[in-house]
Amino acid sequence: MSMATARFTPWPRGWSRERRSTATMASAVVLMLVVLWGLARALAFAPEPIGSNAQAFADGARVTVELTVVSGLAGVVLGILAGLGKIARVPPLRWLAEFYVWVIRGTPLLIQVFFAYFALPALLPFVKLEEFGWGCVALALNVGAYNAEAIRSGLLAVPKGQVEAARSLGMNRWYTFIDVTLPQAFKIALPPLVNNIVALLKDSSLVSTIGLVELTGAADLLRSKTYLPIPSFVTSASIYLLLTTVLTHFSGAVERRFDIEDKLG
């Protein structure tokens, strides 16, 4: 995922790897905020019908980013839990995790979005959420199942001797997991996790079907209003591209942070 950013190091030569990584992550976050904040102003200069609808695209982009951040973070936590569940020694935990991954990966995301929005409120009447909330539930559950596979393989790839070393130092299971196993597993799982998060950003377009006006929804509204599909979708696609580029930039810096052997150059 670091293809575009691998050779790009705008930071002073003397800076350490951590410092460069932190700087890149910070700059990516700032860039994302600048994009969200400046999009309406920049698009206002675009020819019609985009110029007069700049704010709709900017609002849509903001919703898309919010969906991605919320369900992405929840999806990583779900992925860790389900990944741990898949290698658990207690059979019911393993079954539960395997069932979850099996169902989610074997059914279409669009069905999951519909199910979350139309069926879950009836099944869980005490949970009061809006479109955004149910959309996040569907997306988080979906990306969580894919993350589980990545985390599981990462956990299995950490050598047994690492756990033995930590345990022989008297560290309990919790510290062994948090300080020794998880950071190493996370590093191994990072490239597939990044793929999943970038896919999530694009797949979030499916929640436009439950009436959520994110980037795709905004473009489609404009198309139906103006009968001008080309500028509507070219604009939204361009904004997606911009967002995935910034996200890739950010995740490249995260990978770099874990790259203590300097393999990425």
Partner: peptide, 23 residues
């Protein structure tokens, strides 16, 4: 478990493959 953690804190171990934490 309480025995084990207490025990392991008192018993140091050095492995053939070092098993340093690479991160």
């Amino acid at each position: 478990h309480r025995h084990l953690d207490a025990l392991r804190a008192e018993v140091g171990m050095v492995f053939q493959q070092f098993n340093l934490f690479p991160h």
